[in-house]
Design a protein around this nucleic acid. Structure first.
Lengths: 220, 220
DNA sequence: TTTAATCTTCATCAAATCTTCATTTTTCCC
DNA sequence: GGGAAAAATGAAGATTTGATGAAGATTAAA
């Protein structure tokens, strides 16, 4: 059904979560802490469950990092019941906050609701066609061959691919990719797009489409 | 910020919700029960808050009906704390379940999280008749096929569709769509309408109707 | 410091889009 | 039906927008 990443320092909880969600047909990957997570492969999950209190990195910090990399639902599953903690968690980009001890049925229902919503909204989206982004090394790869993108070119590609299907104006791309305080000219983006296209054309691949009068998008 | 529909039979709760969410810049529409909801205008809301125990229709039934009509997040806000009730609510298509008495901060945080997610995943859409408008990318779609409208054509369509049933003169359309300071000729609108109709006719669809002597309208 | 790579800007060209207008068609009213 | 007003049509010109190629500025590397 869905691929779920569960992060908790308590192995017993991980086992339990796996047992519960496994029955619903989900495939649960267990991680005992941040060191067990391959941040480059977060794309592989449909939903992430996070504990807050963990020895190395705490769940809040982890949540921020995750949210910067992927868009899938992130749910806290924690013993911290204070409202302030819930508020902080959700403010960091999480989608839900479930307190331990949780009801088995509640956990299942909430996870189903989040997955259902993901499908409801996301149904049109598909995998980024053929292009693989190595987030840490900032390289784009097609068929195991690297496309020699410069840093700016890579950032633009990754941003558009991450939000594939959506159209962004040059101003938006400047702001989102280079920061709101970028004082660059729109033509910078135009030129980067041109160069990106040139490099991709060598791979018989043209993922960035112009939407006249509006902007650019990564084709779905 | 967002348009929120709150449904509860207890006026005091509605007032409180309005006060809390109003401070965050949201616009809250209050409904004391099902009879006060115009089911055909659910599109107008970004998020819906539902009580469960209400005299006429109960919240569960209402949730099912709503879910059949629109995709926006639906949150239960209820005094029913049993897990079975939560499970039922989420199973019916709701996205969250908040128990009364709720923490003010929790309510705000959860609502923000849902709205954020909606923006993150969903380039906002508006469906009118068989036509779906992708607001952010300014594209119109019928049966998953894109209608290649130019920017001006799209703006006119979206405006008329948003106010479907109402008739607008060419002057009004010019003013509303291109700004009060537009110095264009009326014939510009005539021509745009012509081109829009040509493009829609390929889809066996003719949503813009001429009202002789008055203007144009999007058919209901 | 020198060199190379990358980023940014700009002028120019081509294409898509917008606007206008003369002409034809439709509608309304007598 | 006839005439006037309104709208539809088709095509040409004006305008806007994006693509392109090249040069200068900036940054990073040697």
């Amino acid at each position: 059904m869905a691929r779920i990443l569960a992060v908790d320092d308590d192995t017993a909880i991980l086992e339990m979560v796996e047992a519960i969600l496994g029955k619903d047909g989900h495939f649960v990957t267990k991680a005992c802490g941040m060191h067990e997570i391959d941040m480059e492969k977060l794309n592989a999950y449909d939903l992430i469950l996070l504990d807050i209190m963990m020895p190395e990195t705490d769940g809040f910090a982890l949540c921020s990092k995750i949210r910067r990399l992927v868009d899938c639902p992130v749910l806290f599953l924690t013993a911290k019941t204070e409202e302030s903690s819930l508020v902080k968690g959700l403010a960091l980009g999480a989608d839900d906050y479930i307190c331990k001890p949780f009801g088995v049925m509640e956990l299942r229902a909430r996870i189903s609701a989040h997955l259902r919503r993901e499908r409801r909204e996301h149904s049109v989206k598909m995998a980024v066609g053929g292009v693989c982004f190595h987030l840490s090394s900032k390289q784009a790869v097609i068929d195991d061959k690297e496309i020699p993108l410069t840093r700016a070119e890579y950032e633009i590609c990754e941003f558009l691919a991450r939000n594939r299907g959506q159209v962004f104006s040059k101003e938006q791309i400047l702001e989102k990719v280079f920061g709101f305080d970028s004082e660059s000219n729109d033509s910078t983006i135009t030129t980067h797009i041109k160069n990106i296209r040139m490099k991709f054309s060598g791979f018989n691949c043209m993922p960035i489409k112009t939407v006249w009068g509006i902007g650019y998008k990564w084709e779905e």
